[in-house]
């Protein structure tokens, strides 16, 4: 499963890995939400995302929205190259508001 989480007190880190697209979307949605509810504040590490499509973006948007609803802090970090490419393509950087740096060449 392309999800890995570290729960460090109130601050949890969720690693999304591998393909993050329509093929996994339906399965990942409940898992992502479960992780979110298990954590106080959440950091989503995107370093290992190898592929992302519209479905993947929507799940990230969902997480952000849901975190806001649950009044939890959420940040997305270590955007992988494919994620950066898509964020740039869709001009979504501002929407997420996280600092984006190249984590991998």
């Amino acid at each position: 499963m392309p999800l890995r989480s570290e729960n460090d007190g109130p601050q949890g880190t969720l690693h999304i890995e591998g393909e993050f697209n329509i093929y996994q979307a339906d399965q990942l949605k409940p898992l992502l939400l479960a992780e979110l509810s298990a954590m106080e504040n959440i950091t989503v590490d995107l370093a290992q995302v190898e592929e992302i499509d519209t479905a993947g973006i929507q799940l990230l948007l969902m997480l952000k929205q849901e975190a806001a609803r649950q009044q939890k802090a959420i940040s997305f970090i270590n955007h992988s190259k494919p994620v950066l490419e898509v964020f740039e393509l869709c001009n979504l950087g501002g929407h997420f508001g996280d600092p984006m740096i190249f984590t991998r060449p």
Partner: peptide
């Protein structure tokens, strides 16, 4: 310039990931 409309993304419970 591109503006991505996310207005239609529903609340998590109602969302169909596909």
């Amino acid at each position: 310039y591109i503006y991505t409309l996310t207005d239609s993304v529903p609340a998590a419970a109602e969302m169909d990931a596909e």
